[in-house]
């Protein structure tokens, strides 16, 4: 046991390599793969920027260029932001756009061309009768989109009880018998959905809607995700994956039960998933790295207080230095 411990303590966090890796991502425009991932581009920029902030290297990206790119992704027809110019506006990319602008303290760039107003209308227009949100007018419903909507509107200071109350009711219907949350009522519990549901409740200050016993069950289900080797999985009997370091830890942090995880073992799992040569973090040791697992690995380490990283807000998945300025709901009149 003690030998194992000291071994994991010897693994080094490759801060500088991670910064270089993230910086290299946008310089790969000659790759076919790069273009195939157009539908996630804006999300990718948000992941990269957030990781850089936690690494205290925010200036790695050129602020003006990024803001210009974000604005070029705005889809005038829908009013939402697309992940890439020429695509349709979508809830996922709309949140990424707003998060990036907020991180740069540049939300006022949405004042041009009524972007802000139309964007708020786009988000609100995607709410369904049952309180859920669709991702775009196409109709796919998922608690992720509820989170996207509530987080976006919160960052913009545009939440209202008409939007919040039915959304909260919907989220509560997604709570399952096993103590987890699903993508919609009755769907299998999944760790990413725990984050979107608890994140939503935290942002609108409605965690009190969950009973004490539900909180207990949630904490149990969440910490049950840690496997004896240290990594976390997203559902029972699945393999561990670094991104759940975020989905599970942030959820536990929101309900104030973070200490139910074995930090040292999880840290070792995340650090073993680093690429020692080019930087970046993969889903599990020996796999190919990507920016998604890189940011969520780093965010997990930040929540646990390792590696001297900047603190991250578990509900917004953004630096605390940014979110501390957001207006807290319910708003004072």
């Amino acid at each position: 046991m003690s030998i194992e411990m000291s071994e994991s303590e010897n693994i080094v966090f490759l801060r500088d390599k991670h910064i270089k890796y993230i910086d290299s991502l946008d310089k790969k425009q000659e790759d076919y793969e790069y273009w195939l991932s157009e539908h996630l581009r804006l999300n990718g920029v948000y992941w990269g920027l957030t990781a850089l902030c936690l690494l205290n290297a925010k200036d790695t990206f050129k602020k003006e260029d990024v803001i210009e790119f974000v604005i070029s992704c705005w889809d005038e027809r829908s009013g939402g932001f697309a992940p890439f110019p020429g695509h349709d506006g979508h809830m996922l990319s709309t949140l990424s756009a707003i998060q990036i602008l907020a991180t740069y303290d540049a939300l006022d760039s949405m004042n041009a061309r009524d972007i802000r107003e139309k964007c708020v209308a786009f988000i609100k227009g995607n709410q369904m009768k049952d309180g859920s949100f669709q991702g775009d007018r196409f109709g796919e419903v998922d608690t992720r989109f509820v989170y996207n909507a509530i987080s976006s509107l919160s960052i913009l200071g545009e939440l209202t009880p008409e939007i919040v109350d039915p959304a909260v009711e919907y989220i509560l219907r997604c709570y399952n018998f096993d103590g987890g949350f699903g993508l919609c009522p009755g769907a299998e519990s999944h760790a990413a959905q725990a984050f979107t549901c608890l994140g939503t409740l935290a942002i609108v200050n409605k965690l009190g809607k969950l009973s004490d016993s539900q909180m207990e069950e949630l904490g149990w289900w969440l910490c049950e995700r840690q496997l004896p080797e240290g990594g976390l999985n997203g559902r029972p009997s699945k393999l561990p994956d670094v991104c759940y370091s975020w989905w599970v830890l942030s959820s536990l942090s929101i309900i104030d039960k973070l200490s139910w995880i074995d930090y040292n073992k999880l840290r070792a799992f995340i650090l073993q998933s680093q690429d020692e040569k080019k930087g970046g973090i993969s889903d599990r040791p020996e796999n190919e790295v990507d920016v998604y697992h890189t940011v969520f690995g780093i965010a997990g380490l930040s929540l646990m207080g390792f590696e001297n990283l900047d603190p991250i807000d578990p509900a917004y998945c953004m630096p605390v230095s940014v979110t501390s300025k957001f207006k807290k709901y319910p708003y004072d009149k």
Binding site: Q29, E30, Y32, Y34, L36, D65, F69, S72, P85
Partner: peptide
């Protein structure tokens, strides 16, 4: 054809994804 424009001022890099795509 309607080509994509990323709006990035420094888009010097020619877009090399496959011709068919």
């Amino acid at each position: 054809p309607l080509e994509i424009e990323t709006g990035l001022p420094d888009e010097v890099c020619p877009i090399m994804y496959t011709d068919e795509y």
